Amino acid sequence: MSLLSVQDMKTDIGQYAVLHGVSFEVPEGGVFVLLGRNGAGKTTTLRSIMGLWTPSPGSVVFNGQDITRMHTADIARKGIAYVPENMGIFGTLTVDENLILATESGRFDKARLARIHELFPALERFRDKQAWSLSGGQKQMLSVARAIIEPRALILIDEPTKGLAPSIVGAMAEAFREIAQTTTILLVEQNFNFARSLGRDMAVIDDGRVVHAGSMEAFAADTALQDKHLGLSA
């Protein structure tokens, strides 16, 4: 059974139809990557899964339960976290305060906090700094850390490498590999080299529809298919 099953998801934003019947299956474990050009519908797909926009018709089934029309807070309580493209951190709060705000109890689990500091050492060094003062890469690390401060079965992550230096991208890839050992990641990414280094399974969205799905290994080996769906040669 898939951990997440998205079937015929259609989402309108105002008067615009953005998704026209998106369907894919995310198996449990590892990293599943959604690829596609700008404006293809990738972010809308994540937001629809998370209940920020409601697909109609269509269904989203998580861990065997239909979550299609649940409120976002209830979806989060089921074990899904969302790391938006804009990172979603609070600039005037410290690193620790941002993490505490993401906990259910209002206090840290020491073991989980220690694990986060292993993954992202900068967050331990700057734990008393206000989030606005962090670098772009450190802000992204904080955003991901907020998503895993509580146990999660699935994390939706939108464009985590956008605007980051190559050295930070490499560190982020290592952290994602570690996280994926225990938590499934659904990753939206336009940096194909980053995506191919992490993804086990993948799907390509174009004009609000899934136009290709399969293993990342097979897709990465087929340059003609990449050029057809992503225009990588351009």
Rank of each mutant, 00 (worst) to 15 (best):
D8L: 04
D8Q: 13
D8N: 15
D8V: 01
M9N: 00
M9Y: 01
M9P: 00
M9V: 04
K10G: 01
K10D: 01
K10Y: 05
K10S: 12
T11H: 08
T11R: 06
T11P: 03
D12F: 06
D12I: 00
D12T: 00
I13H: 15
G14V: 05
G14W: 07
G14F: 12
G14Q: 08
Q15Y: 14
Q15A: 15
Q15W: 10
Y16E: 11
Y16K: 14
Y16S: 15
Y16D: 09
Y16H: 13
Y16M: 15
Y16A: 14
A17S: 14
A17V: 02
V18I: 15
L19Y: 10
L19M: 08
H20Y: 15
H20M: 11
H20C: 09
G21Q: 01
G21R: 01
V22F: 14
V22N: 09
V22R: 05
V22S: 13
V22G: 09
S23C: 12
S23H: 12
S23I: 08
S23W: 06
S23E: 10
S23P: 07
F24G: 01
F24M: 09
F24N: 04
E25G: 01
E25Q: 14
E25M: 07
V26F: 01
V26W: 03
V26D: 01
V26S: 02
V26K: 03
P27D: 14
P27F: 10
E28L: 00
E28R: 14
E28G: 07
E28V: 03
E28Q: 15
E28H: 07
G29M: 09
G29V: 07
G29T: 07
G30V: 08
G30P: 11
G30I: 11
G30F: 05
G30T: 07
V31M: 12
V31K: 04
V31N: 04
V31T: 11
F32N: 00
F32Y: 15
V33D: 00
V33N: 01
L34Y: 09
L34E: 07
L34K: 04
L34P: 04
L35E: 04
L35F: 13
G36F: 02
G36H: 02
R37Y: 02
R37L: 12
R37T: 12
N38R: 10
N38C: 08
A40C: 12
A40H: 11
A40E: 09
A40L: 10
G41P: 07
G41M: 10
G41Y: 10
K42E: 06
